[in-house]
């Protein structure tokens, strides 16, 4: 079974979100997702300053095998993107919960986090 940190919340579509406090959330994709995708070669991230909506498309991750949409688990303004992924997309494979993060959001409503899956819920949803 792949790694699933218990402090994170998850979407069934394989994104994770970390509550950084002060209304800030960091978003990435799960270990299970990077493993299923294989070598990641390209990632398309939202623009800083743009608004993302919970459950809606916020970017694309492409591996040698396939392209996959990234959905934002929360609503809010994008305040940072992981620019290092442009030159080193393989970081997503190497460190999906660490250096392989995608973007940070200033959440419109931090209570949205409560409605997301916890590690056990995701494990079940992902059929792991």
């Amino acid at each position: 079974m792949s790694e699933l940190p218990s402090e994170l919340r998850y979407l069934e579509t394989h994104e994770w979100v970390r509550n950084e406090g002060e209304g800030i959330a960091t978003i990435g994709i799960t270990d299970h997702a990077q493993d299923a995708l294989g070598d990641v070669v390209y990632v398309e991230l939202p623009e800083v300053g743009s608004t993302v909506n919970a459950g809606e498309e916020a970017g694309v991750v492409e591996s040698v095998k396939a392209a996959s949409d990234i959905f934002s688990p929360v609503t809010g303004e994008v305040i940072a993107i992981n620019e290092a992924l442009e030159d080193a997309p393989e970081t997503i494979n190497d460190s999906p919960y660490g250096d392989g993060w995608f973007f940070k959001v200033k959440m419109a409503d931090p209570a949205e986090l409560d409605g997301l899956l916890d590690a056990d819920g995701y494990r079940e949803a992902a059929g792991e």
Binding site: G38, D39, V41, V64, K65, E90, N93
Partner: peptide
Amino acid sequence: KIVDFGGWDMPLHYGSQVE
């Protein structure tokens, strides 16, 4: 990582396809 290829269980990669 085993995948179906034309009715055969075949290795897609052994860790990293790019490597």
